[in-house]
Design a protein around this nucleic acid. Structure first.
Lengths: 204, 204
DNA sequence: GTCTATAGTTAGATAGAC
DNA sequence: GTCTATCTAACTATAGAC
């Protein structure tokens, strides 16, 4: 299997490098200023290239956005799965859930996940459907851990697991809106607070 | 105290009516399509007016956005306070918290609160500061209920109340991103799931 | 108060030289 | 592959008639 832009020997072409740089700076700009505020000219300037040259690598502005989103969901998935693997397959599902949520939060804070998700609705329908599927796959990782905990009899009954999953992930995704990197709390501590609520509640 | 656009007798001028209609349709359009995608022309068309006429009522596009945000945070506050009042001042703080969260969620779902919050960062600094103050005041309502519960000895110790408050409100704010009005769950049921987590956790 | 007409700006995208 | 130059379309905002 050969990726476009790579030669049969696996060497990386100049085009491939430029394309990668464009995705990188576009990602940063979209995060910092919101997808709507970032123009093709601005992306070009940040990548030290002229605006017209962008269209050698991407056929439209939306193509750039699409590439950025694609990379984003893949990277988050990789980091969450790595965190789960590191916790060990024979650890408690709750331990792995904690690891997965912490990885999710760290990725969210680094990449301002929420704006990524919100950008999806502005894509053309076919691309949007594709990305919503990717998001569903991502969510399924967490749903799987919850289900495993349930199967092992670790959880009480009487709650809707899928609602709980969405509430929990929403709480973490929203952290990006109020988190202060210069504040006293680390992402791990926030995750621990959330796991505290999830395990014990806050009521006596 | 007399609001601009109202006569001393409290009659509502034509300008006041048009202005109100513009805010109304702008709110709807901003919610549906995101603040960046909505042009002055589109707002005008939806309000059955010509684009140029908008500038009789607002000095700039940002002024419209400002008015929309202003109304939004005020209305949410009113509804939450009404829900708290309805629960009764001598009810348990947790009962009032539940009522406040349900009102918050309902308002969020009706008005797509999260896009309102995200628009703030694009405002000029002075307006942004003003609105962040309003958001803080709003959050203080919920913080107050938690603190009262704490003072009455209803809560366990060992958690950071302000982090819990932000996680809980974030979870609800994010509901607007996944909620399906045609689905089986009502806003009240979602609130109850959240209160269930908060009171008991989900772990055995 | 609302209209029509338009100025002034900036966006995404293309064409052809190099 | 990247540049320069430019097209077309859309935007915000203004001016003056009614």
């Amino acid at each position: 299997m050969q990726t476009e832009g790579q030669t049969a020997e696996g060497r990386i072409t100049k085009a491939e490098r430029t394309r990668a740089r464009l995705i990188e700076v576009a990602t940063r700009l979209f995060q910092e200023h919101g997808t709507a505020e970032v123009t093709v000219r601005r992306i070009a300037a940040a990548a030290k290239i002229e605006a017209g040259s962008i269209y050698y690598h991407f056929s439209s502005r939306d193509e750039i956005l699409r590439a950025v989103l694609e990379r984003g969901v893949g990277d988050a998935r990789d980091e969450v799965l790595a965190a789960i693997a590191e916790a060990g397959a024979d650890s408690s599902p709750l331990v792995r859930l904690r690891a997965a949520l912490a990885a999710h939060l760290k990725y969210t804070l680094r990449h301002h996940f929420s704006s990524r998700l919100k950008a999806i609705r502005h894509l053309p329908k076919r691309l949007r459907d594709h990305h919503m599927q990717q998001e569903r796959d991502y969510a399924a990782i967490f749903a799987g851990l919850l289900r495993e905990a349930q199967r092992k009899g670790l959880l009480r009954g009487g709650f809707d697991a899928s609602v709980v999953r969405m509430l929990v992930m929403g709480a973490l995704t929203w952290v990006a809106e109020w988190y202060d990197p210069k504040g006293p709390l680390s992402p791990d501590e926030i995750t621990d607070e959330l796991m505290g609520i999830l395990t014990k509640g806050i009521v006596k």
